[in-house]
């Protein structure tokens, strides 16, 4: 088999021309010279073509390698992005758990007070009873002793009953909030009381710092939605005010106003009178990991979770505003009944 040559036809033409030139040894000089010039020019043109083909083949090969490299890099970048998204999701999950932890901490603190009071009353009553038993065994009880003991027993038992009732009521309201927060189940609930229950579980955080919360919500708005998500949204707003809005040591005010702009729609305006949000940050405030408190405990996920919950399961919208009078204001618009 002949060796394959891309320029086979050109080589043959050149060979024929050279043979022709040899056969014209006796032709006039002008013909011979002219033919020599033509053959030389064609020969160099074919060599030029070979060079050009080689050069452009090399360029095209490099281009193909670069394209492959580009494809590889793109796949790598896409994988890195997917990993980042997964990491972001898992951070959001742990942030949700952390805020559930804060809720449980608040509940524990809130219940600790009535239980502590009840415990010290019970212990005081036990001591008094023990002292009475000793006097009784010594047959030495005076009228004064008896009257004092009766007063102690009446006061302590009233305090025990009152504080246990308070603890039981707290546990009842926390239980619903905690169940909603962890179960993400859809159910019917009365909006005003649910907002108050959620705020009660955040009570210690708010009261310790000396802040006031006002809820202005018409009675009888029954939602068919996800109370856990709503409770999380509200908690994150409150924690945002406490961490970012209010300077330490200054008592702030939080106002939650609810109305119904159209039938089937609920509008909740959450506002505080804190430092407000710088105009440059307003467009980024719902972005994941955006925080002005990096390194000081801010994860940058609180309001991102708010955004996800409101636009996701709650099927609503959320907007941020910094009113001229100062402070921050969030407007959450929700359907009274979600579609799924």
């Amino acid at each position: 088999m002949a060796v394959f040559s891309l320029f086979d036809a050109e080589e043959k033409a050149l060979e024929q021309a050279r043979a022709l030139r040899r056969s014209l040894a006796d032709a006039p000089e002008a013909v011979r010279d002219g033919l020599d010039t033509l053959i030389g020019a064609y020969d160099s043109s074919v060599r030029e073509q070979r060079r050009l083909v080689k050069v452009s083949d090399r360029l095209q090969g490099q281009l193909a390698s670069l394209n492959q490299e580009l494809g590889k890099r793109k796949a790598e970048a896409e994988e890195a992005l997917a990993n980042l998204r997964a990491a972001q999701d898992s951070l959001i999950q742990s942030e949700k758990l952390a805020s559930l932890g804060a809720l449980v901490g608040g509940v524990a603190h809130e219940i600790n007070t009535p239980v502590g009071v009840a415990l010290s009353c019970a212990s005081h009553l036990a001591d008094a009873t023990d002292a009475m038993r000793k006097l009784f065994e010594a047959d030495d009880i005076g009228i004064d002793d008896f009257e004092r003991y009766m007063a102690t027993a009446r006061d302590t038992s009233a305090l025990i009953v009152g504080n246990c009732e308070r603890a039981a009521a707290l546990i009842r309201s926390f239980k619903q909030v905690a169940v909603d927060r962890t179960s993400s189940e859809r159910r019917s609930f009365e909006l005003g009381s649910y907002i108050r229950e959620t705020l009660a579980s955040l009570g210690p955080h708010i009261r310790q710092a000396g802040h006031r919360v006002t809820v202005d919500c018409p009675d009888g708005i029954v939602m068919d939605s996800y109370p856990g998500a709503l409770s999380q949204v509200l908690s994150n707003f409150v924690m945002n005010s406490l961490v970012h809005g209010f300077d330490p040591g200054t008592g702030g005010a939080i106002v939650i106003t609810v109305d119904r702009p159209t039938s089937g729609q609920v509008r909740m305006i959450y506002s505080d009178n804190g430092k407000g949000i710088a105009p440059g940050n307003r467009s980024r405030i719902f972005d994941p990991f955006f925080t002005t408190r990096r390194g000081a405990g801010g994860s940058g996920l609180g309001l991102h979770i708010v955004y996800n919950l409101v636009t996701g399961p709650l099927e609503g919208g959320v907007a941020v505003d910094s009113p001229p009078g100062g402070g921050a204001s969030f407007t959450v618009t929700l359907p009274q009944a979600v579609s799924q």
């Binding site: 891309l6 320029f7 050009l52 452009s56």
Partner: peptide
């Protein structure tokens, strides 16, 4: 296709 393939294709067509 690259340049030498183009040349080879032309040769085939011829």
């Amino acid at each position: 296709f690259n340049s030498s393939s183009a040349k080879a294709l032309m040769n085939m067509l011829k």
